[in-house]
Amino acid sequence: MAVKIRLKRIGKKHKPIYHIVVADSRSPRDGRFIEKIGTYNPNLDPPLTILKMKNSVSWLIKGAQTTNTVKSLFSKSGVLLKKHLLEGVKKGAFTTEESKNRFDAWYKKYRI
């Protein structure tokens, strides 16, 4: 079973809100899903993204593929960086404390 992390559309006409979900790639866009890991509201300025960081990273480590839009959202929120740092710790490139410090430094610089 191929697993994808993608957007599920909810909301009114012309006022979309999306759930970020983990779903089987064969299921329809607004159909069954395995787990809801966040929400995305593009109607606000700036757009609001709420994510469960641990769940997002764990699904990426398990091999779930992201759609282009979700990959962009993950990049902006730091999920992809967190996954990258955890893989570096697993390979022995640096310690857990150093990866936490690197992520905190990035968060302070790019997230207000």
Rank of each mutant, 00 (worst) to 15 (best):
R32D: 12
P46F: 03
K36Y: 03
L85G: 04
H19M: 15
P28E: 08
E97W: 10
L81P: 10
Y107A: 13
H84D: 08
V70E: 09
F103S: 10
K8T: 01
G92R: 06
E87G: 02
H14I: 07
G11E: 14
H14C: 11
E97F: 07
K76Y: 06
P47T: 06
L48Q: 15
I10Y: 13
D24M: 03
K108M: 03
H19R: 15
A2Q: 04
F103G: 09
G92M: 05
W106T: 02
L80G: 06
V22T: 02
S25T: 12
L51T: 14
K108D: 13
N43F: 00
K12E: 15
F33H: 05
I20N: 03
E97Y: 12
L60Q: 02
D24Q: 12
I50W: 05
S25R: 11
H19G: 02
G78C: 05
R111E: 09
I20A: 06
K90C: 11
A93K: 14
V79R: 08
N41I: 00
S56H: 11
F94R: 09
R29T: 04
R9Y: 02
G78T: 09
S99M: 13
T66R: 03
L51I: 13
K90A: 15
H19E: 14
M1K: 11
M1A: 11
S27D: 11
S72N: 09
H14A: 14
R9V: 10
P47K: 09
K76D: 11
K91I: 09
E35N: 08
S56T: 12
I20M: 01
S27A: 13
T39S: 13
Y107W: 12
T39D: 05
K8M: 08
F103R: 01
L44R: 12
A93I: 09
E97R: 11
K36H: 07
K76W: 00
G78M: 14
L85Q: 08
W59T: 01
N43D: 06
D45E: 13
A105Y: 02
Y110P: 01
V3A: 00
K71W: 11
L44D: 09
N43E: 09
K91C: 03
E87V: 02
S75L: 09
E98D: 10
A105P: 01
F74T: 12
